[in-house]
């Protein structure tokens, strides 16, 4: 077991987990932050996307012990009242279907807009193509990102 201190959504947590445990399972099983989803386990679908110091990463593919001092932001770290422009746009455009991939999609969109406040369709294609959705919400994800960009 390894003792690891993580900064998650503005709070510090110290956990005892096997040293090789991916961040995903510490968030979900140890900290109870189940908004971050398991989809593939090998960084191919981004259902588990979280931010490390604002940069989107696949939480299934980084060990919790490798996070260090970096600030982890999960879907639960966005405003609980859904007031973030990306969350508002997601509701307005009625993006989700089943919703399972959406926490990852939203974290990806928030990171994209932080880096590029007015993304073109090509920018969205490039940034969001790693984020898979089986229900097929891509058209609405695109619309919601454009809508959020107008509001930011």
């Amino acid at each position: 077991m390894a003792r690891i201190t993580l900064n998650v959504n503005g709070a510090s947590h110290t956990v005892d987990v096997p040293e090789d445990t991916p961040l995903l399972w510490v968030l979900r099983d140890t900290l109870g932050l189940t908004g971050t989803k398991y989809g593939c386990g090998i960084g191919l679908c981004r259902a588990c996307a979280v931010h490390l110091d604002g940069e989107p990463v696949a939480a299934c593919s980084i060990r919790a012990s490798a996070v260090g001092e970096r600030e982890v932001t999960t879907i639960e770290g966005l405003p609980a009242d859904l007031s973030h422009p990306v969350q508002r746009a997601w509701i307005t455009e009625q993006v989700p279907q089943c919703g399972y991939c959406q926490p990852g999609q939203i974290m990806g969109a928030v990171a994209l807009l932080a880096r590029n406040p007015q993304p073109s369709d090509a920018d969205i294609d490039e940034a969001m193509s790693p984020y898979l959705c089986r229900c097929g919400t891509y058209q609405r994800v695109r619309r919601a990102i454009h809508r959020a960009a107008e509001e930011v």
């Binding site: 979900r28 109870g32 189940t34 908004g35 971050t36 989803k37 398991y38 999960t74 879907i75 639960e76 966005l78 609980a80 859904l82 969350q87 997601w90 509701i91 009625q94 993006v95 989700p96 919703g99 399972y100 959406q102 926490p103 939203i106």
Partner: peptide
């Protein structure tokens, strides 16, 4: 609007995988 979408967008909807 779908009635349960706020929970989907907030990441608080309990899927089977999230049951504890």
């Amino acid at each position: 609007p779908r009635l349960d979408h706020p929970a989907r967008v907030g990441g608080t909807l309990t899927f089977g995988m999230d049951v504890k």
